[in-house]
């Protein structure tokens, strides 16, 4: 196996060895859709609230991966000198970041597929009605959130601070993004702010596409902007030691 493959596979094994991260990113979203499926009994109903539960499960898992686990892991790799050790070998330590992102995005996809299938097959939640819009929302949501997570990892001096900042962003995003509570139940001011946060834009885009409309250009634009700005900033500012 080429070195990058071995690196990615080893990192994946290590990730899955930590029960907490696997539970939070895969089991929790599936459990959420199952619990709310059992309570709300969607039965194929088109009520907008029925798009809230599966998208909330997806957004929660994605936010955990991007804002919580990624900054903690990467800042920890820097703090522990893992990146430095690797930079003394022929392997470029940037590949370690790539491997981590590949794994996280892979897990996000697995979680999304499980949430959609379990929700649809077991509880009759509808499938995303505008599938192209859903893909766009999911892909841009991933890139925007991981870019922000990488930026936190890039500038946080220690893993502890990265975790703190990540968790802070995570909870603020949940509230403003209409994940903690559906946007229709939030004060308009909070929704307005949420439109411009990566998680809020992701959440609203996912819900729009789930109910069959194309996500708003505002939201996709916001996600694109976060991807480019935070991504470039992370790449420029990343401290290797």
């Amino acid at each position: 196996m080429p070195a990058t493959g071995t690196l990615t596979f080893t990192e994946l094994k290590i990730f899955l060895r930590d029960p907490a991260s696997t539970i939070v990113t895969i089991a929790l979203p599936v459990a959420i859709v199952a619990v709310f499926g059992a309570i709300a009994k969607p039965g194929g109903e088109q009520d907008p609230i029925m798009t809230y539960f599966p998208t909330m499960a997806l957004a929660l898992g994605l936010a955990q991966l991007a804002l919580n686990l990624t900054p903690t892991t990467l800042a920890g790799y820097r703090e522990k000198g893992i990146l430095r050790r690797m930079s003394t070998t022929p392997m470029n330590p940037a590949r370690l970041l790539t491997a981590q992102l590949l794994i996280s995005v892979g897990l996000a996809v697995v979680a999304a597929v499980l949430v959609i299938l379990v929700g649809h097959l077991a509880f009759k939640f509808t499938l995303p009605q505008n599938f192209g819009g859903f893909l766009a929302a999911f892909v841009l949501g991933c890139t925007a959130l991981f870019a922000v997570g990488l930026l936190v990892a890039a500038v946080a001096p220690t893993a502890r601070i990265a975790t703190g900042v990540g968790v802070g962003l995570f909870f603020v995003s949940l509230v403003f993004g209409g994940v903690f509570m559906p946007a229709e139940n939030l004060p308009p001011f909070i929704v307005r702010v949420g439109d411009y946060t990566p998680l809020g834009a992701t959440m609203q885009s996912l819900r729009d596409s789930w109910s069959g409309t194309m996500p708003e250009m505002l939201h996709l634009g916001v996600l694109g902007a976060y991807t480019v700005v935070a991504g470039l900033a992370a790449a420029r500012l990343f401290r290797w030691e």
């Binding site: 930590d18 790799y77 522990k80 000198g81």
Partner: peptide, 9 residues
């Protein structure tokens, strides 16, 4: 390197 660790797991 001095004070350089590996992944715990």
């Amino acid at each position: 390197l001095q004070e350089s660790q590996l992944q715990e797991r």
